[in-house]
């Protein structure tokens, strides 16, 4: 397995936030972690990214043990919920910041930076500052900045939660395309069921620090592990047709 979390545990002030979480995923796939607010999604992600150390358990990526490495030494990059863009740098400077620590010459870095900005459709704004662009554009800069260092694993914490509904749908498609084109492995946190169903190759559903189920969307749809999963995903209102279409029933009371 490419990414392996085994028996991760984390407590805050004596309260179990993540309990005995084990999970695996393959290379080039997109995993969605799904769960209600406060169930420990961000905490899990922070442990993979290295911002929190688990109390016990192990994190393996591509055969390498990451558990005790500091974030700057992990081949993992993160798109933060609040983006964490540098307000004193231009878009281009933001995007190429990570290359500084990977032996790139300034010119090469800028060239590559332009390519990635182009990829997310922002090549013409390379010299702008962060506060001069919109939320959706900031989102894309953060994505380009995380992907440019060619990480083995990219983590995204509710990346679309600050965007409006129409933009979310658009960004969702772009992200999926990027992920396929680059053959990138991604872990994506969300609490939007629809988003998870559409984006993911596999879904991990969490509740109060426990992993309830980890499987492909279709298999979860056909065999929800328990009642909670069923209710949480609103499975009664979804229809997965034989030809692979997912339909949602929206009841309209008269």
């Amino acid at each position: 397995m490419y990414l392996e979390l085994s028996h991760l545990k984390k407590q805050f002030d004596g309260k179990d936030v993540v309990c005995d979480l084990s999970l695996t995923m393959e290379k080039g796939k997109l995993l969605c972690i799904l769960g209600s607010s406060g169930c420990g999604k961000t905490t899990t992600l922070n442990m993979i990214g290295g911002f929190l150390t688990p109390d016990s358990g192990k994190i393996l990526l591509d055969g390498q043990d990451l558990t005790r490495l500091p974030p700057e030494q992990r081949p993992v990059s993160t798109v933060f919920q609040s983006y964490g863009l540098f307000p004193h740098m231009t878009l281009l400077e933001n995007v190429i910041y990570g290359l500084k620590f990977r032996g790139f010459s300034k010119a090469d870095a800028r060239k590559k930076g332009r390519e990635y900005l182009d990829m997310v459709g922002l090549a013409d704004r390379a010299g702008a500052f962060i506060h001069e662009i919109s939320g959706g554009q900031q989102q894309r800069v953060a994505l380009a900045r995380a992907l440019i260092v060619e990480p083995k694993l990219c983590l995204l914490d509710e990346p679309f939660c600050n965007l409006d509904a129409a933009l979310r749908v658009k960004m969702r498609e772009e992200l999926k395309k990027l992920q396929r084109d680059l053959d990138m492995t991604m872990v994506f946190v969300t609490h939007d069921q629809e988003e998870a169903m559409i984006l993911s190759d596999s879904m991990a559903i969490m509740e109060q620090g426990h992993l309830l189920q980890n499987d492909t969307p279709e298999r979860i749809y056909r065999n929800p592990a328990n009642d909670f999963v069923k209710r949480f995903l609103n499975l009664d209102d979804l229809i997965w047709t034989q030809d692979g279409k997912l339909m949602k029933i929206i009841s309209h009371q008269m």
Binding site: G49, G50, F51, P70, P71, E72, Q73, R74, V76, S77, T78, F80, Q81, S82, Y83, G84, L85, F86, P87, Y97, G98, K100, F101, R102, A142, R145, A146, V149
Partner: peptide, 22 residues
């Protein structure tokens, strides 16, 4: 913003570069 500092670390910046660059 704590996230900018986390982002810098995430991209490979050690303490020295966090101080000087961010």
């Amino acid at each position: 913003d704590a996230a900018s500092i986390q982002a810098a670390r995430d991209l490979g910046a050690g303490p020295k570069h966090i101080l000087l660059d961010v």
